[in-house]
Simulated assay, not measured.
Amino acid sequence: MTDHSSPEKSPWGWKALIIACILGAFFMGFFYLAISNEPDYMPSQKQKQAQQAATSAASEPTAAEMNMTEAEHAAMAEAEKSAEHGAGH
């Protein structure tokens, strides 16, 4: 009796199928990562960055939120302003 379950006698039959499935899985994973992350140059990302910049500038923490006295907070604010001013020159 002979085995007629697979008429194809190529040694690459199942190996080629497995390799194609693995390469397909890698491609689909790469494709998923590509479409799930919007690049920085997209208009929607630029709008988000602009909104975040406006929000973070408007929500500067107060002395109570930073567990500082008013004098320490004022000194820190002055140090930041002088550092920004000094970095500009």
Rank of each mutant, 00 (worst) to 15 (best):
H4A: 14
A71I: 01
H4Q: 11
A75S: 07
F26Y: 04
A83K: 11
A74D: 09
F30M: 07
Q51K: 13
F31P: 01
G88E: 14
E38A: 09
E38R: 12
K9F: 08
E78D: 12
A75Q: 13
G86H: 02
L33R: 10
Q45S: 11
G24E: 00
A20N: 11
M42W: 12
G13H: 04
A53Y: 10
A83T: 05
D3S: 05
A57G: 06
H85T: 12
Y41I: 08
P61R: 03
K15S: 05
I18H: 10
I18W: 14
D3P: 03
A50H: 04
I22L: 09
A25L: 12
T55N: 13
Q47N: 07
P11S: 15
E72Q: 10
P39Y: 07
A20E: 06
G13A: 03
M28P: 00
S36V: 09
M66A: 11
A77Q: 14
P61E: 01
P43E: 08
K81A: 15
H73E: 02
G88I: 10
I22R: 03
L23S: 05
S5M: 15
A50S: 03
D40N: 12
M28L: 14
G24T: 06
A57K: 08
I19L: 15
Q49T: 06
S82P: 00
F30Q: 00
F31N: 00
I35M: 13
D3Q: 06
F27R: 01
T55K: 04
A54Q: 15
K15T: 06
